[in-house]
C-alpha cells in the first residue's frame, strides 16, 4: 500500500475475536470475528493467522483482539507478516486480551511489530490463565524500518496465573534518552513467556537460602525462571533476525515442562 493511500485512510476502531470450545473431545473454533484492519483467517484445525487488510495500525486506530481458549482446548495464533505502526492523528493502540481455561493451551506467535518514525503506539496484553493452562506468548518490537530511528511505544503486559500475578511489565520505547540500564543501543527487544501448569509451581521462597532456579544467559538474551509458574526469555538485538535467533536460543534452554 502506498503512503498516499495510508494517509488517506481514516482512523479505525476494530475488534476481532477468537473463541474455542471443546466438542467431542476436540477443539472447535466457534467464534472467529474480525474487522479491518484486523482480519483473521483460519489456517489449520486450531490455527488462526492475522492478515492485514489495511495498513497500520495508524495513529488514531484502536484495535482489540480477544482470545478465549476454553478448558481443554488448543489455539495457535500467528500473523502473516510483521505489523507496521504508522503515525496519524493521535496515538494508536492494540490491546490483546486472552483467557486460557483449565488444561487449555494457547500459542501466540505473531511476527514483530515495527514502529515507524513518528508513530505513537500503545500495546497492552492482558492474559489470565486458569489452573494448569499453558501459554507460549511472543512479543517482538523493532524500532523503525531500515534507516529509521523509530517512533514511540509504551507496552504493558499483565499476566495472572490462577488469580495470582505472574508477570507485569511496562516498557517505554522512544520516549527518552536511551539508557545503559534499559535498552542500551539495541533497536529490537522481544520476549517469550512460557508457562508450566500452576500445580508444578516452585515458589522461590527458597530465595532466603540463596537457592533460585537457574535460568541461563548469553549475549543479549536471558532466560529467567519467574517466581510463579513460568519462564521469561528476554532478548535485545540489533535487528529482527538476530532478535529471533536469540529468543530461539533462549527457548532451547527452557526445560520442557
Amino acid at each position: 500500500m502506498s503512503l498516499a493511500a495510508v494517509a488517506a485512510r481514516r482512523a479505525m476502531r476494530a475488534r476481532a475475536e477468537i473463541a474455542t470450545t471443546l466438542s467431542a473431545g476436540r477443539t472447535a473454533l466457534t467464534v472467529l470475528r474480525s474487522s479491518p484492519p484486523l482480519t483473521l483467517r483460519q489456517t489449520g484445525p486450531v490455527t488462526v493467522h492475522l492478515v492485514s487488510t489495511a495498513a497500520g495500525p495508524l495513529g488514531g486506530d484502536e484495535l482489540e483482539l480477544d482470545l478465549r481458549v476454553a478448558p481443554g482446548t488448543t489455539l495457535e495464533v500467528g500473523s502473516i507478516a510483521s505489523t507496521l505502526v504508522l503515525p496519524g492523528e493521535g496515538p494508536s493502540s492494540m490491546t490483546v486480551t486472552a483467557h486460557v481455561g483449565a488444561g487449555a493451551s494457547l500459542r501466540f506467535a505473531p511476527e514483530p511489530t515495527v514502529l515507524a518514525d513518528g508513530c505513537d503506539h500503545r500495546m497492552a496484553v492482558r492474559l489470565s490463565l486458569d489452573g494448569d493452562a499453558r501459554v507460549w506468548w511472543r512479543e517482538e518490537v523493532v524500532m523503525g524500518r531500515y534507516g529509521e530511528a523509530g517512533g514511540r511505544c509504551v507496552t504493558r503486559f499483565d499476566a495472572t496465573a490462577g488469580g495470582r500475578p505472574l508477570l507485569r511489565q511496562e516498557l517505554e520505547l522512544g520516549t527518552g534518552p536511551c539508557s545503559p540500564a534499559v535498552l542500551g543501543g539495541a533497536r529490537c527487544v522481544g520476549s517469550v513467556l512460557t508457562t508450566r501448569p500452576c500445580d508444578t509451581a516452585v515458589a522461590d521462597g527458597a530465595v532466603a537460602d540463596g537457592a533460585v532456579a537457574d535460568g541461563a544467559v548469553a549475549d543479549g538474551v536471558v532466560v529467567m525462571p519467574l517466581a510463579g509458574p513460568g519462564t521469561l526469555v528476554q532478548a535485545l538485538a540489533a535487528d529482527a533476525v538476530e532478535l529471533r535467533e536469540r529468543l530461539d536460543w533462549g527457548l532451547a534452554q527452557v526445560p520442557p515442562s
Binding site: A213, M224, A227
Partner: peptide, 22 residues
C-alpha cells in the same frame, strides 16, 4: 510482595531485593 515478584522477572534481581529486604 507477590506483585513485586511479578514485576521482577530476573531471579538474580529477586534474590538481591529479598536479601536487602531481609
Amino acid at each position: 510482595d507477590a506483585e513485586l515478584d511479578a514485576r521482577t522477572a530476573s531471579p538474580a534481581q529477586r534474590e538481591a531485593a529479598r536479601t536487602q529486604g531481609r
